[in-house]
Computed example of a mutant assay.
Amino acid sequence: MEARHHEDAPVIRVSAGSGSGRTRLSAFDAALRSAGVANFNLIRLSSVIPPDAEVREVEAVDQLVGRHGDRLFCVYASAHAELPFHQAWAGVAWALADDGSGAGLFVEHEGPSEDQVGHDLTASLEDLIAGRGGGYAEAGRVVTSVTCDTEPVCAVVVAAYLAQGWTA
């Protein structure tokens, strides 16, 4: 069943990025820049998609916009590698309720291989769905990777719910 979306329903934008830097932190920042969310303060959410939401895969240029330092409420996976030829894989997958409400669930995983991240995303979604008695189906996933050459690297996938300033 297709989800019903209201005009003012939230759009959750999912983007991916990767980058390198002289430290793990600067590699993480480079990956966030690549995903289009570097100038936010990330506030990590658990993995519940509200009813009426629309999950949309986007490029970095189409990610949420806001002012420098705004809060970004998001679900994300970030993976690091620091040794030459090692890989960093990050992924986010989601399932939506069968009732068409738009309600759903995100899962996020990171690891050293595509196989591990793919397996973990599938297993977690299956467990979350089973724990709720069923009624959901996988609706999408975004997985990305980067291979370390000489500097630390980071791969991220970010599901951005809401950008919000600090004043009421």
Rank of each mutant, 00 (worst) to 15 (best):
97 A>E: 07
125 L>D: 05
137 A>R: 14
100 G>I: 04
73 F>A: 04
149 D>C: 02
135 G>C: 14
96 L>P: 11
83 L>K: 14
91 G>D: 08
123 A>E: 13
115 D>E: 12
142 V>H: 01
134 G>T: 03
83 L>D: 13
87 Q>Y: 03
100 G>K: 00
114 E>C: 05
96 L>M: 14
95 A>N: 08
75 V>C: 03
101 S>L: 09
128 L>I: 13
132 R>T: 12
88 A>H: 04
116 Q>M: 15
100 G>S: 01
89 W>P: 03
138 E>L: 10
80 H>T: 11
81 A>W: 03
100 G>F: 01
104 G>Y: 12
130 A>T: 11
122 T>D: 12
93 A>E: 00
98 D>Q: 09
134 G>L: 02
102 G>A: 11
105 L>C: 01
78 S>E: 10
83 L>A: 13
135 G>K: 14
107 V>P: 01
107 V>L: 01
112 P>Q: 03
119 H>T: 15
76 Y>S: 08
110 E>A: 06
115 D>A: 15
116 Q>L: 15
140 G>V: 05
143 V>T: 14
126 E>L: 11
92 V>N: 00
131 G>F: 09
149 D>R: 09
81 A>D: 06
140 G>W: 07
109 H>G: 04
74 C>R: 05
133 G>L: 03
122 T>R: 12
111 G>D: 08
141 R>K: 14
116 Q>I: 13
119 H>C: 10
73 F>E: 07
111 G>A: 01
103 A>F: 11
106 F>V: 00
122 T>F: 10
95 A>G: 10
101 S>T: 10
125 L>E: 07
141 R>P: 13
84 P>K: 02
99 D>C: 09
